[in-house]
Computed example of a mutant assay.
Amino acid sequence: MTVRIGVIGTGAIGRDHARRINQVLAGGKIVALSDVNPASAEAVKADIAPDATVYATGEELIAAADVDAVLVTSWGATHEQYVLAAIAAGKPCFCEKPLATTATGAKRIVDAEVAFGRRLVQVGFMRRYDAGYVALKQAIETHTGAPVMVHAAHRNPAVTEAYTTPMAIHDTLIHEIDVFRWLLEDDYVSARVTFPRTCARSHAKLRDPQIVTLTTAKGVVINTEIFVNCHYGYDIQCEVVGEDGVASLPEPMAVQMRLGAKLQNSILTDWKDRFVASYDVELQDFLKAAAEGTASGPTSWDGYMAAVTADACVAAQDDEGATVAISYPSRPALYA
Rank of each mutant, 00 (worst) to 15 (best):
residue 230 C to P: 10
residue 28 G to Y: 00
residue 52 A to M: 01
residue 211 I to G: 11
residue 213 T to D: 06
residue 239 E to I: 11
residue 239 E to Y: 05
residue 246 V to C: 06
residue 25 L to H: 12
residue 333 A to K: 12
residue 221 V to T: 14
residue 258 R to G: 13
residue 175 H to I: 08
residue 39 A to I: 10
residue 247 A to F: 10
residue 115 A to K: 05
residue 79 H to W: 10
residue 326 I to R: 04
residue 92 P to T: 13
residue 297 G to P: 02
residue 289 A to C: 04
residue 243 E to W: 10
residue 52 A to L: 10
residue 27 G to F: 10
residue 258 R to F: 15
residue 131 A to C: 00
residue 124 G to P: 05
residue 322 A to K: 10
residue 130 D to A: 02
residue 90 G to F: 00
residue 335 Y to T: 12
residue 182 W to C: 07
residue 336 A to T: 11
residue 12 A to C: 15
residue 131 A to L: 04
residue 271 W to E: 13
residue 140 I to R: 03
residue 326 I to G: 01
residue 147 P to Q: 05
residue 75 W to A: 15
residue 183 L to P: 07
residue 249 L to H: 07
residue 140 I to G: 01
residue 158 A to H: 06
residue 274 R to H: 13
residue 11 G to M: 07
residue 327 S to Q: 07
residue 148 V to S: 10
residue 321 G to P: 04
residue 2 T to Q: 15
residue 140 I to C: 01
residue 336 A to R: 08
residue 249 L to T: 01
residue 85 A to G: 00
residue 1 M to F: 12
residue 146 A to P: 06
residue 77 A to N: 13
residue 90 G to S: 00
residue 260 G to Y: 05
residue 214 L to V: 03
residue 171 D to H: 12
residue 210 Q to E: 09
residue 206 L to F: 02
residue 158 A to D: 06
residue 121 V to Q: 04
residue 292 E to V: 03
residue 277 A to G: 09
residue 185 E to S: 13
residue 171 D to N: 00
residue 159 V to K: 03
residue 284 Q to S: 14
residue 123 V to F: 07
residue 209 P to V: 09
residue 293 G to E: 02
residue 328 Y to P: 00
residue 201 R to A: 14
residue 268 L to S: 03
residue 1 M to V: 15
residue 81 Q to S: 10
residue 3 V to P: 09
residue 94 F to I: 06
residue 325 A to G: 06
residue 35 D to G: 12
residue 206 L to T: 04
residue 270 D to I: 02
residue 250 P to Y: 04
residue 262 K to G: 10
residue 71 L to F: 15
residue 130 D to N: 05
residue 13 I to R: 09
residue 107 K to A: 06
residue 301 W to P: 00
residue 144 T to C: 08
residue 187 D to C: 15
residue 192 R to W: 04
residue 254 A to S: 14
residue 271 W to M: 08
residue 210 Q to W: 14
residue 146 A to Q: 15
residue 237 Q to Y: 05
residue 228 V to C: 10
residue 200 A to L: 04
residue 306 A to W: 05
residue 252 P to E: 02
residue 204 A to M: 09
residue 58 G to W: 02
residue 50 P to K: 13
residue 229 N to M: 08
residue 329 P to W: 00
residue 252 P to I: 03
residue 65 A to L: 01
residue 50 P to Y: 00
residue 279 Y to F: 15
residue 45 K to F: 08
residue 272 K to I: 12
residue 69 A to W: 05
residue 101 T to L: 12
residue 34 S to F: 05
residue 58 G to S: 02
residue 65 A to D: 13
residue 37 N to H: 14
residue 186 D to C: 06
residue 80 E to N: 08
residue 265 N to P: 09
residue 223 N to W: 14
residue 146 A to G: 08
residue 218 K to T: 13
residue 25 L to V: 11
residue 76 G to H: 09
residue 247 A to N: 10
residue 294 T to F: 04
residue 112 A to F: 00
residue 140 I to T: 14
residue 38 P to D: 07
residue 292 E to W: 05
residue 282 E to C: 15
residue 15 R to F: 13
residue 173 L to S: 08
residue 81 Q to W: 00
residue 298 P to Q: 08
residue 97 K to V: 06
residue 282 E to D: 15
residue 325 A to H: 11
residue 258 R to I: 09
residue 162 A to F: 10
residue 15 R to Q: 08
residue 179 V to S: 02
residue 46 A to K: 13
residue 305 M to D: 12
residue 17 H to C: 03
residue 313 C to A: 15
residue 88 A to C: 06
residue 179 V to I: 13
residue 292 E to D: 04
residue 33 L to M: 12
residue 223 N to G: 15
residue 36 V to R: 13
